[in-house]
Simulated assay, not measured.
Amino acid sequence: MDPLIAFKALANPVRLRILTGLKEPARHFPPQDEGDIELDGVCVSSIQEGIGLSQSTTSDYLGILHKAGLVTMKRRGQWTYYKRDEDGISKLAETMRTKL
């Protein structure tokens, strides 16, 4: 993980809100028709609805968080699910503790 990419990803308040919401997805996003939140993660359409952005902007933001190593992505058929990457987040926190 490149900390600079992660910090740039988190500099956007909406992306930070998405990552924060994924910590307690049932509380921050509407129920989804397919997939298990705990097992699969949260479907893009549920994240989109919870955040109130277009599908393309939501997908772009999730792609940036994924590239930064802050979320994982899983595809099941036509659905794409995202979860927090707790290992990536822990590595970033450790970098902050030791380098700053």
Rank of each mutant, 00 (worst) to 15 (best):
M1I: 08
L70F: 02
Y82W: 07
A26R: 15
Q55Y: 15
M73P: 01
L4Q: 14
V14M: 10
K99I: 15
G77A: 06
D33K: 14
P3G: 04
K74T: 13
L4S: 14
A6E: 00
Q32R: 05
K83N: 08
I5D: 05
G77N: 08
P25L: 02
K99N: 14
K67T: 12
L65F: 03
S90F: 13
T57P: 04
A93K: 11
F29H: 01
A93L: 14
R17Y: 02
T95W: 14
N12Y: 13
E94W: 09
S46T: 04
T95I: 08
D40R: 03
R17V: 00
E34T: 13
F29Q: 01
S56T: 13
G35A: 06
P30Y: 03
Y81S: 02
E24V: 11
L39Q: 13
R84E: 02
E86M: 08
T98K: 15
T57K: 15
T98S: 14
L16T: 11
H66G: 05
L16E: 10
G52F: 07
P3I: 03
L92D: 00
A9Y: 01
K23Y: 12
R97W: 10
E34A: 11
D33S: 14
D85E: 11
R76P: 04
L70H: 00
Y61K: 03
S54W: 05
L19A: 05
R75V: 11
P31R: 07
R75H: 11
D85K: 04
L4W: 09
F29R: 00
T80P: 03
D85Q: 08
K67H: 12
E94D: 13
K83M: 09
E49V: 06
G52C: 07
V42E: 01
T20L: 15
G63N: 09
R97S: 12
F29G: 00
M96E: 11
Q55G: 09
V44P: 00
D85P: 06
S59L: 09
G69W: 00
S54C: 07
D36V: 10
L10A: 05
Y82D: 01
K83C: 07
F7H: 14
E38R: 11
